[in-house]
Design a protein around this nucleic acid. Structure first.
Lengths: 233, 233
DNA sequence: CCAAAAGTGTTCTTTATACACCCATGT
DNA sequence: ACATGGGTGTATAAAGAACACTTTTGG
C-alpha cells in the first residue's frame, strides 16, 4: 500500500463522479458542449465535463463546480438526470456517476478563457462523435428527458436569451421535438398561459417584418402552477 | 489506522447506498413498507430498506438485493427515483444514496419469514411516522413521482393482483391521486386503449352485482407505445 | 323485495387542428 | 415594388366533463 493511498475504509467503495450533459441552442439546432479529454483513459476523445465528488459538496455542487472549471459556465439551469452505475463503465475502476443536464442560454457565451480554452466545443446534436465512457448512453437518456420535459415544463426558455421572439421559441421547439409546428397554433398555446411579457423592442435589420421580443415571466408562471394549471405544448 | 480499514484510496470517497421506497395497495389505501432499524444510528426508528453498494453490483442490483434480504420481496417493479447527497444526511459520515421506488402487487404477500420477520411493516400513506435519515424527504419525492407517473404510464397495474376488477383499479387511482373519479369516464378512458383483457371470472360472495376480472396485457400496451399512442388517465 | 355496487350512453363544453391572408421591413 | 418572414382569426373535429338509470347479487 503506497503512502499516497491514505484514505482507508473497512469496506471497498466505488468512486463517485458527476457528469454534465450541456445543451445549447444556436437559433437553428440543438447543440451539445463537449470536452476533449486531456488524459487517459479515452485521451483525445470527447466527453462530458465532470469529475470526482468532494467530501464537502453535494453532487449538484460538484456538477456546477466542474461545469465552471471546465467550461466557464455558471448560473445555468441544472437538473439531476440519472445515476449510472454499470460495473465496467470506467476502466479505472468501479465508478458511479450522477449525471446532470444543463441548459445554457444561447451559444454566444462560448466557452472560455484560460488554460482550458479550446478544449470545449459545441457540436450539433446530430453530429455528436463517439464519446468516452458510457457517455453516448447518458446522452440518449438526456435527450429523451429533454424531449419529454420540454412539453410540460417551461424549460425551453433556459436555452434562449433573456429576450427572444416567438419565431425563435418556435424554432427551438421544432429543433428539440424534431417536427414542424403550426405558427398560429403555437402562438395561441404559448400565449394563453400569459407567461410571456411582450416588450416594445423589435428585431432590427431584418429584410422583412421585424419580430417582437418577449421575456419569460417566472412569477406569472409560478402563479399559474399554484392555481393548478399546467404548462403544456 | 486500524487493521480492519484495509481499502485505501488516494482521495476520500463517500459511502454509497441505495434505499427503496416500497408502495403497496390494500384495496383502499396506498401503503408504504418500512423497516424498524435494529442498529444505530436511528435505532428503533422506521426507515426504508437499503444498504451499501457492493463493488460487483449495479445500484439497481443492490436495491433488489436489499429488498429481498430485508423484506423477502423479489421480482417487483423497481425504478430509479433520485440520488440524495446532502452532506449531513447520514451521521456516520458522508453517504450518497441512490433511491429507488418499488411497486408491489397487493399487500397479501406480506413480509417475510426468517430473522427479520416483524421488523418490516406496512403503514398507511397518511400515517407514516417520522423516519430515519432524510427518508421523509425521499418519500416526498417518491410520492410526487408516483402521482405524476401513474397518469401517463400504466404502472398502476403493478400494485394490483394479476387479476383485478375495474372498480379496484379506479379505487387505486383515486387513492393515489386523492380525488374521486367518474366511474363511466374512467372506464371509457381505460378501455379505449384496449390494454385490458376481460376474463370470464367474476367476483364471488359480494352482496351486490359481481364485478368482472380483467388482466393487463403488456403486449397490447407495447404495441400501443410503438404506434405512438400514449397511455393517459 | 331491498340494499348496494356494477355496468352502460348521450349531451354539452372545451380543446386541438387545419388552414390563408395581410403586414412590416430592407433592398 | 418585391421578397421575406411576422402576425392574426375562424371553422371543424376531437376529446373531456357532466350526468341517471338499469342490472346483478346476497341477504
Amino acid at each position: 500500500m503506497s503512502e499516497n493511498r491514505k484514505y482507508c475504509y473497512k469496506y471497498p467503495r466505488p468512486a463517485v463522479t458527476t457528469d454534465c450533459v450541456i445543451f445549447g441552442f444556436d437559433g437553428n439546432q440543438l447543440n451539445l458542449l463537449l470536452i476533449a479529454r486531456g488524459i487517459e483513459p479515452f485521451k483525445g476523445q470527447w466527453a462530458f465535463p465532470g469529475g470526482f465528488v468532494r467530501m464537502q459538496e453535494t453532487t449538484e455542487a460538484c456538477a456546477r463546480r466542474e461545469l465552471a472549471e471546465e467550461t466557464g459556465l455558471s448560473n445555468v439551469y441544472l437538473e439531476q438526470l440519472y445515476t449510472f452505475s454499470d460495473i465496467e463503465r470506467d476502466p479505472r475502476g468501479r465508478t458511479i456517476s450522477i449525471a446532470y443536464f444543463a441548459l445554457v442560454k444561447s451559444n454566444e457565451r462560448l466557452p472560455i478563457a484560460g488554460d482550458d480554452a479550446g478544449k470545449a466545443q459545441w457540436f450539433a446534436i446530430d453530429k455528436v462523435p463517439e464519446l468516452a465512457f458510457d457517455h453516448n448512453k447518458i446522452l440518449a437518456v438526456a435527450l429523451e428527458r429533454l424531449r419529454g420535459k420540454i412539453r410540460y415544463q417551461p424549460i425551453g426558455f433556459e436555452l434562449l436569451p433573456e429576450q427572444f421572439t416567438l419565431p425563435q421559441l418556435q424554432k427551438l421547439y421544432e429543433a428539440i421535438l424534431r417536427q414542424p409546428l403550426d405558427r398560429r397554433n403555437f402562438r395561441k398555446k404559448i400565449m394563453k398561459y400569459n407567461i410571456l411579457e411582450p416588450l416594445d423592442k423589435k428585431e432590427e435589420g431584418t429584410p422583412h417584418r421585424a419580430a417582437r421580443y418577449n421575456r419569460f415571466n417566472r412569477e406569472k408562471y409560478q402563479a399559474l402552477v399554484e392555481k393548478g394549471f399546467n404548462f403544456e405544448i
